[in-house]
């Protein structure tokens, strides 16, 4: 029984980590007033860039940072279009979801002789207890990737910045009432630019957390919908860092249940079992969460002088 619980915890953490990175990206962007529907695309390009650099350079950490950089570059597109040009953020986000995977697969075919998957990276990101720490005890399932810890630190950091620093207050005010923030001397455009680019960097990290820690290469399906789940987690968590973190954990937990239940001899068909995380999410939403209200200026371009 204890073994099973520990296995469930291990799988929960493994599954939720890429989601947490994506969700934190969503939280910071949306709290500053820019809807980021492009997380899926940013995660995909990050997953590819991470695997590419990880393979050619051989250093997973460099790959991890390259992933963040590539996600940030895509986010810059969103920032320019939606902040400077005041374009519709939903449309730009969707375009990024087309451009990101398209670019990743295009470049993959160019660099890997027409293959849509990269070669496996020689070194993955380290595990927290080292490679041979607990290999023969039941706690070996808890020997999770270092990204799990990073994701938790990231969520805590975001919480601290939002609620304990003046920078956080500025971000929140820009997301709630940009005109008021502007009259107090806060540079609305600058803050939104920074938040959106950081959002892309986080999402890129999330992609790399998949291709450099969970698996060791990029494939066309390695990011299939995680970005959208992360987006749902943001709304589920009511746009707060730990709310979104909890939503990701819940989702990872449901995935772990699917795997553990699927391993035991249950009479439920695997396809029905696979629906569990999604059904569970909806039920939890109905029973406990209910109406979620977005930051007031979320999705609204800020025009100087408008009321």
């Amino acid at each position: 029984m204890l073994t099973k619980i520990i296995i469930i915890i291990g799988i929960t953490l493994m599954y939720s980590t890429p989601l947490v990175f994506g969700a934190m990206g969503g939280v910071i962007s949306e709290r500053s007033g820019v809807v980021n529907l492009g997380i899926e695309g940013m995660m995909t390009i990050g997953a590819f860039a991470g695997a590419l650099v990880g393979y050619y350079v051989g250093d997973p950490w460099l790959g991890f940072f390259a992933a963040g950089l590539s996600g940030g570059c895509l986010a810059l597109l969103l920032a320019i279009a939606s902040i400077s040009f005041k374009a519709d953020q939903t449309i730009v986000g969707i375009s990024i979801n087309l451009i990101g995977p398209g670019l990743a697969l295009f470049l993959s075919r160019l660099t890997f002789n027409g293959a849509t998957m990269t070669s496996p990276v020689p070194y993955k990101l380290p595990k927290i207890f080292g490679s041979n720490g607990l290999s023969d005890t039941i706690f070996s399932s808890l020997n999770v990737d270092v990204t799990v810890v990073l994701a938790f630190i990231l969520a805590s950091l975001l919480w601290f910045i939002f609620y304990k620093t003046k920078w956080g207050l500025r971000i929140l005010s820009v997301g709630e009432h940009p005109a008021a923030a502007d009259t107090l001397g806060v540079n609305v455009y600058l803050i939104r630019y920074i938040c959106v680019i950081i959002s892309g960097i986080f999402a890129g990290f999330g992609g790399a957390a998949m291709t450099l820690a969970v698996v060791s290469q990029f494939t066309p399906v390695v990011i299939s919908g995680q970005g959208f789940i992360a987006l749902a987690a943001v709304i589920f968590g009511k746009w707060t860092p730990f709310g979104a973190y909890g939503a990701c954990l819940l989702f990872g937990f449901a995935q772990a249940l699917v795997i553990v239940l699927g391993g035991s001899n249950f009479a439920i068909p695997s396809e029905i079992l696979a629906m569990l995380p999604y059904i569970l999410t909806i039920i939890v939403l109905i029973l406990f969460v209910g109406r979620s209200v977005a930051p007031k200026a979320d999705g609204v371009p800020y025009e100087k002088g408008s009321r």
Partner: peptide
Amino acid sequence: EIINIMIGTIVFFVAL
């Protein structure tokens, strides 16, 4: 996949 990039760019410019 160049087509996906192209469609994505069209949608992007539709917004702009």
